[in-house]
Design a protein around this nucleic acid. Structure first.
Lengths: 218, 218
DNA sequence: CCTACCGATCGGTAGG
DNA sequence: CCTACCGATCGGTAGG
């Protein structure tokens, strides 16, 4: 998500020079993301990625064994960024309910802002077994954040008691479903922008938190 | 979902003969579904589909202009089947809450039983604008069923009042998210089978219905 | 629905 | 990281 993809040919020599110093790997990841965003998955070939990065089609093999290895790097970057954005958004809040709400909104917003990453992270593009997301980083991943927050809410007597897993899966399903509907453009055109997505994510996550609350004795 | 794909070569002439009488179109749809299920999307080419259906690679063009047209047929079949399964499962129940629950379970079960259809229906595989799902059939589609059921629940005073759209989107997001997590194999291995899926769908949909209920005055 | 054929692209490797 | 090259496959069409 850092540097941008590069033009096709006519690179300034100074630019190309940098690839010899370690930028090419990231440039290839960026090129893959841009290519998916602009041309779709079917256009994603190692050769086209190489073209976008301004190198010949043999160069990527110095950094990635094959296309799947490149996609793994994209997914890794995505999981890392998503968890970071969730943490940042939860940090200012102390209440488990508020933290759960913010985590959900951040999950959806990440997907809306980074559809290629989201698609690679959760799509059917890997044939080799991958290390589960929770092992991706030393820091807590998105799923772990949800579990911990929900357990904190239960411990504080704010959320329905019992096993945390069903509640966590409910929360995950809701935000994952909403995110998927956005990314796959299944919602009305009026709901396409990031602002609309945030508004909708807020409403949905509010309903979620309400539904997971301890039911008031009635 | 009807007939099965056919072997590669050595067809009995009687079998091939049928293609001249109108079976090839469906055979191609079935072949595409089987190919996606067994080899993944990247293996889906019109030529391989033709091979599976036992015809030469030029034959499919008699029925589909291109790969996208074939996928549109798969999606159409999927939307139709999903709505039908939802209706069948809802039919025995009168209470809107029960009907909502059954609709949700049916949605998830359809995805778990027919991953290729689900992927084609909601995946990013179409470049041409498609007619929205709700227009796919004369009969009510999956989304319409959800909306109607929720509005019936509101009218009966069983579900939270107000606009039906946010509630519908919550329900849709939850079942779509759970379905997606299954289809994309994001859940633990212990949760892979259809039975596990149904059990989980039941729990999740129960939580959903609880959450959408009119909050008891407390 | 088939045979025959086209240009284009791809993954991958040798060898520097 | 590049040039040069390989076999394989694909979408699509002509012409029957």
């Amino acid at each position: 998500m850092a540097t941008k993809g590069k033009r096709k040919q006519e690179e300034a020599p100074a630019d190309r020079e940098r690839y010899h110093h370690g930028d090419l790997r990231q440039a290839l990841v960026d090129a893959a993301v841009g290519l998916i965003a602009e041309e779709g998955f079917s256009a994603l070939t190692l050769r086209e990625v190489a073209r976008r990065a301004g190198v010949t089609h043999a160069a990527p093999y110095r950094h990635f064994a094959d296309k799947e290895a490149l996609l793994e790097a994209v997914a890794h970057e995505g999981f890392r960024a998503m968890a970071r954005e969730m943490r940042e958004r939860m940090a200012p809040h102390a209440s488990p309910l508020e933290r759960l709400h913010e985590a959900g909104v951040a999950y959806v917003l990440f997907a809306v802002r980074h559809p290629p990453h989201f698609r690679v992270m959760f799509g059917p593009h890997f044939t080799r077994p991958r290390s589960p997301p929770q092992m991706v980083e030393g820091e807590a991943d998105a799923f772990r954040l949800l579990v911990d927050t929900i357990e904190a809410g239960q411990a504080a007597g704010l959320l329905r008691a019992g096993e945390s897993r069903p509640l966590t899966l409910t929360a995950w399903s809701l935000v994952h479903g909403l995110a998927s509907l956005f990314v796959d453009r299944q919602l009305d055109e009026s709901l396409r922008g990031v602002e609309a997505a945030e508004a909708l994510a807020r409403v949905q996550t509010r309903l979620l938190v309400e539904g997971l609350k301890v039911p008031p004795r009635g």
